[in-house]
Design a protein around this nucleic acid. Sequence first.
DNA 1: AACCACCGACCGTGTGGTCGGTCGGTATAT
DNA 2: ATATACCGACCGACCACACGGTCGGTGGTT
Lengths: 207, 207
Amino acid sequence: MSVPPRYRARSRVDVSGEESRAKAVAVATELFALTGFKGTSVAAVAARTGLSQSGLLHHFPSKAALLTAVLEERDRQDGDFLAGSAGPPLGWAAFDALGALVARNSTRPHLVGLFVRLAAEATEPAHPAHGWVQEHYSGLRRWLTDAVHAGQARGEISQDAPVGSLVRMTIAVVDGLQQQWLLHPDEMSMTAEFEAFTATLRARWGR
Amino acid sequence: MSVPPRYRARSRVDVSGEESRAKAVAVATELFALTGFKGTSVAAVAARTGLSQSGLLHHFPSKAALLTAVLEERDRQDGDFLAGSAGPPLGWAAFDALGALVARNSTRPHLVGLFVRLAAEATEPAHPAHGWVQEHYSGLRRWLTDAVHAGQARGEISQDAPVGSLVRMTIAVVDGLQQQWLLHPDEMSMTAEFEAFTATLRARWGR
DNA sequence: AACCACCGACCGTGTGGTCGGTCGGTATAT
DNA sequence: ATATACCGACCGACCACACGGTCGGTGGTT
């Protein structure tokens, strides 16, 4: 004697689907950034997207799939940025490009939050984004290492420079500054601090 | 008609209470480090401690209280370390002390994990450890800033050094190296990387 | 008798995910 | 021109489970 279910009148026409999907990714990006992956519920994303939970799950089979979509979108947006229009930047130009990325990130705190939280959460090997984070770091390191080597080849960077350490500490500075900036956004400028760092680098290993 | 509850035979004698408490804190430290605060259940901590969930909650009224205890314990263990026996270290000695702390942390990955995960999680203002993390950073920055100023006063560090940036980038390097180390523990040495960094600093602003 | 350490049962809430269904639109057959 | 078949988008109801936390106890020690 199950009562036949009632359905709300459709409040508006179904949007194109692709549109809903995109909005969901945007919302998820923001929420994951704010409260982390574990700390964000599918229902919350759905609500802010304007869908029911099942509606959202219609586009993404699972929460992890949603995360993957978010990550892919971020890669797509940032991917070209460091690549440069005419091949990847070499030598100190790579550090400038990184500085430009930092400046750009200063405009988008939610993306920074997303990354910082995710990088920490995904340290756990079982985390759905663990592989992604590992690859992200490896890729970044390879990119910067190549640039430094090229800089040495053209005599722009000293042959004595400890390339590996240089690369690692540069990435470390970027990450660490993000952490501090999220904690006290208006007490500091990531851009300025990063430039102070690269200035020190140039003074030590330049020319 | 509630059935009178059965009780398992006590498997072993009640331990001293203080002992259970301490063990719970140790276990919680490890679990929080592994899966974060949000990602760790009270039940899991209880199980690994050898208590029931209620037994654990007998010692700590809430999960947040357990976190507080963990944090206090960490402060207690690390607090004296940077202080030094005869007053806080000044000038470059402070960087050496920091290096020693990094070296010590290389021995205790779970503490590093705890801090990295917590620092990221607690970026969210509503997080129970938000205040703690903010204070932790402020305190660290003040400590290092004072040390650098003292170093300048005794002519050990250049007057031209941008103190604020120097402090911020140093802390950033420590944090960033921890992140990388957690991701690829046996591909790098935090200690070596940190020393390479301080060497650069000394070369640029020393004497 | 009082106290302490501890436990089992239970509760309300929130979780990710499934299921069967409705609806508008479009392609096709007649 | 109309009927039919199908599809993608979406929803409400529901589920099993895990969560943090409460409550009323027991059993040993002092």
